[in-house]
């Protein structure tokens, strides 16, 4: 049986005594996840908006496909990227396997469909609302994309947080492409998996508590910022 006190003391000793290594792991986790999510935002938001506004043959198929990819099993994504990046794979020459960059690519691939699919829906709804107004101003569909993205920014924060949630909770893909190398590709989630396998359940649980606290902090921060922003722009 796990005792609450054991977990609590594990959390405290992690934060205190062995803080240096914990900090390294936390920073790597945050670095990989946030980079992946920001990149997915830069690529995914315009793509989602484009998919919402531009009509082309096969558009419905693409939308269904993107929606399906939201459920792309991480372990499959990890395996595909592993085979691509392996020395004997097509991108092996880059030497990226078992590096933080490989983990970033894996999370980017997992987060991108979420950003595209959810922002497509948001922008499409907004477009039905603003269509006449924007058209009367002489903006074409493509020309409207920046305006719509900017106007939907507070809803899109939730989209990005959904992506962040996917990335920060993920272990299957980064374990395969990162290799869980101590001090180099060991993240919060792979540490939890490792400590569980070593039978140190209080330490694993303590890491879990810290990871969830971090996620809570990031979500709280994002919510606060978007509320303040909404108030200043009179959209609350």
């Amino acid at each position: 049986m796990l005792q609450d006190m054991t977990i609590l003391s594990s959390v405290l000793s992690l934060l205190g005594g062995d803080g240096g290594r914990l900090l390294e792991i936390v920073l790597l986790s945050l670095g990989v996840t946030i980079t992946a999510v920001v990149c997915a935002g830069f690529v995914g938001l315009p793509l989602g908006a484009g998919l919402a506004l531009v009509r082309f043959p096969g558009r419905t198929v693409v939308i269904v496909l993107v929606n399906t990819l939201m459920g792309f099993p991480p372990v499959v994504a990890g395996l595909v990227i592993f085979l691509l990046l392996s020395r004997s794979g097509p991108l092996g020459g880059l030497g990226l396997l078992f590096t933080p960059k490989a983990m970033m690519i894996a999370q980017f691939v997992l987060v991108l469909p979420i950003v595209v699919a959810l922002s497509r829906q948001t922008i499409e709804d907004l477009w039905t609302e603003y269509r006449d107004h924007l058209t009367s101003l002489g903006a074409g569909r493509l020309g409207s994309i920046p305006t719509l993205l900017w106007d939907a920014r507070f809803s899109l924060v939730t989209t990005m947080l959904a992506g962040l949630g996917r990335a920060s909770a993920e272990v299957g893909a980064i374990l395969i492409v990162g290799g869980n190398i101590a001090g180099f590709t060991r993240t919060m989630t792979t540490s939890i998996a490792l400590e569980t396998s070593k039978g140190d359940l209080p330490l694993a649980m303590a890491l879990g508590v810290i990871l969830m606290s971090l996620t809570l902090a990031i979500n709280g921060l994002a919510y606060g910022i978007s509320r303040v922003g909404a108030r200043f722009s009179g959209k609350s």
Binding site: R87, F98, N180, I181
Partner: peptide
């Protein structure tokens, strides 16, 4: 940098050149 796997998988990782 250690990749900790089962022996079979470790040998396979090496066969791939990783």
């Amino acid at each position: 940098k250690v990749i900790a796997q089962g022996t079979g998988q470790a040998l396979d990782t090496a066969r791939r050149g990783d």
